[in-house]
Each structure stands twice: as structure tokens, then as C-alpha cells.
Amino acid sequence: MNCTIVVIDDHELVLDGTVNLLKDHYPNATIQIAQTRQTGQTLIEQLQPDLVVVDLSIPESEGATARFETGIELLKFLMQHYPTLNIVVQSMNPKPLVRLKPMIDDHEGGFTIADKKLRRDEMLTKLDMALNGGTYLPKEMKLGLEVKPEWLELLRLAYQEGLQDKAIAKEMNISDRTVRNYWTKVQDALSVYPEDNQNLRTQVGIRAREEGLID
């Protein structure tokens, strides 16, 4: 896959490990690295990458102390200024991200959280998912089933009215891209993720019925 990836992490060894992993998995990708928020932000502005892999605990600039608040601020900035950017948060402690949940729900690009405790293959799944515009938040960050009214409307139109995405977009007066984004959010809310030999939309329908979201 030809893509540009920016990796932001203040630990040199972690950076090396992540870059090696990315090079193995995406041999044709252009990978750039940054160790502070400032350099990372500049790189993203210059390169407009397809994917950003960011650690939460990073320093503001060289010599500064790494703080998760800095990572939170960077993510806020990225989601505000690049609403379609694909982001993977790779962190040892991603829990403070819960502060950004409303923003993540509205973000139109891919957004996945990869706890550093994940195995290599699980980490790669999260990278692929984000690159394809998917959303993944760990279950422990959710209080039960959290579904927005517009996502419910999408489910109703798709499974009860039997409408296609284009017709749903017209009915809900939103863009095709937003419909696709709603699908990824619904998939995450229902914990339905891409798996081999499984039709995602069918799985979503089954789970939505199990949860009583649709008749």
C-alpha cells in the first residue's frame, strides 16, 4: 500500500519498534517520525499523511516533560483541523482519551486505540482498521451501549426501510461519507469488527436486533 504515515512517540526505542512493525506491514509506505508535539504537528501540516500513529504521553517540545495532556491537546487539534485524518493512538495508558469521546464520535476519519499491551498482530489490525476509516474504542471506555439518535435512525432506515447508503444519505440529509462514518461508529458501539468471511452489515443487523435497537 502506498501511503504516508507519521509516527509520534518520545521514546526512541518505541519509535524504532513501531517503525519496524510498520515497514514490515506496509513495505511501500513513507514513514516519518517525530518525538514532540511541535515537530509532529509540523510534519502533519506539511505531509498531510494518510495515517498518524501517536503516543498520548509526549513532550510539547524538545527537553520538555512528556505529559498525556500534551497528547490530548494534539489530538484535539488534529480532530478539529483534519476531520478526515486517520488516527491510531498507541499508548501505554489510553484511559485519559475518554475525555475526547464526544470528539471521537464526531470525527469522520478512522480512529482506533491500540493499548501498548496488545500483541503485534492485534496492533496491526488496529492500524488497518484506522487506515480504512474504522473506529475502535476499548469496551471498558464505554458505559453499556452508547448509541446516538442519528445512528439509530441509520439502523432503522437500513434494516427496517431497506434503504441503500445513497438513499439513507438523502433521507437524513447528510453526505455519503457521513453515512459511512455512522456505520463505523455503529459497528464500534455494537462491537462488530471486520473478520474474515463475515459480512459486516449482516453482523451489525444481528447485533442491533439482539440489543433491541431495531425490530
Binding site: 521514546h11 518505541v14 524504532d16 519498534g17 513501531t18 519496524n20 501505554m92 501498548k116 499491551k117
Partner: peptide, 9 residues
């Protein structure tokens, strides 16, 4: 934990 992560990878 970060050092452990590197070792693990």
C-alpha cells in the same frame, strides 16, 4: 512498562 513494550516487540 515502555521498556517492557520494546523488549516485547
Amino acid at each position: 512498562m515502555q521498556e517492557l513494550f520494546v523488549l516485547r516487540r
